[in-house]
Design a protein around this nucleic acid. Structure first.
Lengths: 111, 111
DNA sequence: CCAGGGTGTCAGCATCTTCTGACAGGGGGG
DNA sequence: CCCCCCTGTCAGAAGATGCTGACACCCTGG
């Protein structure tokens, strides 16, 4: 149930999501345990809106998941945790993913 | 079998190098066999200067190697081939690499 | 001489991402 | 009342990146 070969587009999204110092740091921080936006922003010393954007990017790539938890007293806190992803990066896996790049419906010469 | 743990900076370079549709396509094309700049540009239908830049990026990240071969008749052809890299991408490997992230060689301090 | 194939580099433009400050709100407690 | 905690969204500056056409050069063959 793991290591399902990602489509080229999916692989690209993951790579693009991880290709940033801040986002790497965020993943590393979440790997040690869940946290919420404001707390994480304080720990990593970055603006909340900025961190918010990065978290959304990571979530869009499927690397982290966010859950808005509303406590019984009504206050809302959005918890983020890392998804136990695992992907192997080699010339072969890249070559296997590339043909499934782009829409994949038809058209091969798109430029 | 060189599973040497990459430094954060190194990992970031590889990820950034791979986070591009064109560059993924280039790696895939080279995975099927070596080629040289002009020929590859023709096959992938892109400008030579552009492909040249992408190849340099990939080479800087250590994913491909280029060798300028001067034939006995004097004509020069730069052959490129893919390096058999292999890196495992998981929350743990990211967390392990992040502490060795550098802010840019020297002097530059994080804000 | 001229056409053709190759490498390497450049200035400049179009475009995308990143980042910031300020805003909208929700709710709890002195 | 005011102050504190949290989420979510915005316009727009600032900067990095992708991309193009044109140029420099070398060598071979008609």
């Amino acid at each position: 149930m793991d290591a399902a070969p990602p489509t080229g587009t999916q692989l690209l999204a993951v790579l693009a999501a991880l290709a940033s110092p801040h986002r790497l740091r965020i993943v590393a921080a979440l790997a040690e345990g869940r946290s919420y936006v404001s707390e994480l922003a304080r720990r990593l010393q970055m603006n909340r809106p900025l961190l918010y954007m990065h978290l959304q990017r990571l979530e869009a790539a499927g690397l982290v998941v966010g859950t808005l938890e509303t406590a019984p007293d009504g206050s809302s806190v959005k918890w983020f945790e890392v998804v136990p992803f695992a992907l192997s990066l080699t010339p072969a896996t890249v070559a296997a993913a590339v043909p499934t790049l782009e829409a994949g419906g038809s058209g091969k010469d798109e430029k």
